[in-house]
Amino acid sequence: MIGQDSWNIQLDSNGRLKHFLTIEGLGSQILTEILDTAESFANVNEQRMKKVPLLRGKTIVNLFFEASTRTRTTFELAAKRLSADILNINISTSATSKGESLLDTLQNLQAMLCDMFIVRHCDSGAAHFIAGNVAPHISVINAGDGRHAHPTQAMLDIFTIRRNKGHDFGRLRVAIVGDILHSRVARSQIHALNTLNTGDVRVIAPKTLLPTDIEDMGVTVFNDLQTGIRDADVVIMLRLQKERMQGALLPSEHEYYSLYGLTEERLSAAKADVIVMHPGPINRGVEIESRVADGNRSVILDQVTYGISVRMAVMSMVLGRQPEPNESGAH
């Protein structure tokens, strides 16, 4: 399992989404299908009766090895609106380091006869590892693995952009600002934006927060915020974690804000109808000014709402598939 060259471990033999681990390697057709399906669920979510019976009888396990509120609860809500049963399991990494290996943990949970694991883990590649080692009838959705990927977050961001800017990504300039080095969200966003042929994808960060050869992922690099966001249609701010000061990556939050904080004044360099996004949680006064976060160009709270529809879309696509012969027999 481990050694297999598994770019498309995510797809079944008919090319349908079996696991959702990374945007990389998925075509625009699948991404568009996710967006269109999410659009139909967005209508469900706006109705008074918010539940559909699509996944009745399915069991989904939220398997979080790393703390999360927003992502976990939106997955939970999405599962409930699809009428699935959902179980929340929070395993602090210290518990696994006490002796039980990740593989042992998985085998124990698998014995509970569930259909899907939604996984968050601090190691890059954890979701791939889990997908490669679970019973064949179980699907895995990556809810964030290390610095590698956070594909549902990226899709809800794309969904937000599409709702605000329309379907033609070719004419858009999107700037992603902040700690690219440690960001799984940025990596997934970059893949998704490029898969959908976005005209100009930029990353803006100090040199200490940029990974080596990030240009190879299809982005233009800027170290200066002013230049980078000029005429942008979309500005995506990333959270700056306080630990970054300890690693000597930055001198202080104050200095970071003075150079890379998104203020009303700086935002004026972008297009007049620019939208401002943030995957949350926000550090006001560190990466973004409150006036911007709460201002009329901010779509930050819409992102959270859309997150439910997008996660419903992914879950229903993955679990609504006709199972293949090699996936049966486990129940």
Binding site: S124, R147, H148, M217
Partner: peptide, 15 residues
């Protein structure tokens, strides 16, 4: 290796 593969996979690189 601190290069494009580590960056893409989100692995901590060794320069």
């Amino acid at each position: 290796h601190d290069g494009p593969v580590a960056t893409r996979l989100g692995l901590q690189g060794i320069a």
